[in-house]
Computed example of a mutant assay.
Amino acid sequence: MQPVKHLVALLTLTGRYIFFIRSAFRKPENRNVYWRAFIEQCEEIGLRSFWVVLGISAFLGMVTVVQTAYMITIPVIPKFVIGMVARDSVILELAPTGLGCVLSSIVGYRIAAEIGYMRLSEQIDAQEMMGINTKAFIILPRVFAGLYMIPLLMILSIVVSLVAGGIAGVSRGILTEHQYRFGLLNDFKPSGVTMAFVKIFVFSFLIPTISSFMGYYAKGDELQVTKAATRSVTVNCVLILLADYIITSIMLDF
Rank of each mutant, 00 (worst) to 15 (best):
G100R: 00
L162E: 07
V143Q: 03
E177T: 02
I155A: 15
Y180C: 04
I91T: 05
A112P: 01
V202S: 14
G183P: 00
M130G: 04
I138P: 04
I167K: 01
P151Y: 13
L120R: 05
I124M: 06
M154V: 06
I139L: 15
P151R: 11
A145N: 06
K189L: 10
A145F: 06
T134C: 08
R110V: 04
Y180W: 06
T194H: 07
L120W: 00
A113G: 11
I200Y: 06
M149K: 07
G192D: 13
H178T: 08
L94A: 13
I124Q: 07
R87C: 11
M118Y: 10
V163R: 09
L92A: 12
S89D: 05
S121W: 02
M118L: 09
E93F: 06
V85D: 05
A164M: 08
I124D: 10
K135G: 03
G108T: 07
G100V: 01
L185V: 12
I138A: 14
P190S: 09
F197R: 05
G98R: 06
L184K: 07
E122A: 11
L152P: 00
I106K: 14
V202C: 13
V107I: 15
A164H: 04
L120K: 04
V107N: 02
F188E: 14
T134L: 01
G183E: 07
G173N: 07
G165R: 07
I124Y: 05
S104Q: 14
V160D: 02
S104F: 08
V202P: 02
I132S: 07
I150A: 15
A126V: 02
V170G: 03
L94P: 06
S105D: 10
G100F: 01
L94I: 15
R87L: 13
P151S: 14
D88N: 10
G131V: 04
I155P: 00
I167V: 12
G183T: 08
F182E: 11
E128Q: 12
I115W: 08
A86L: 04
I111Q: 10
G173F: 07
I174A: 04
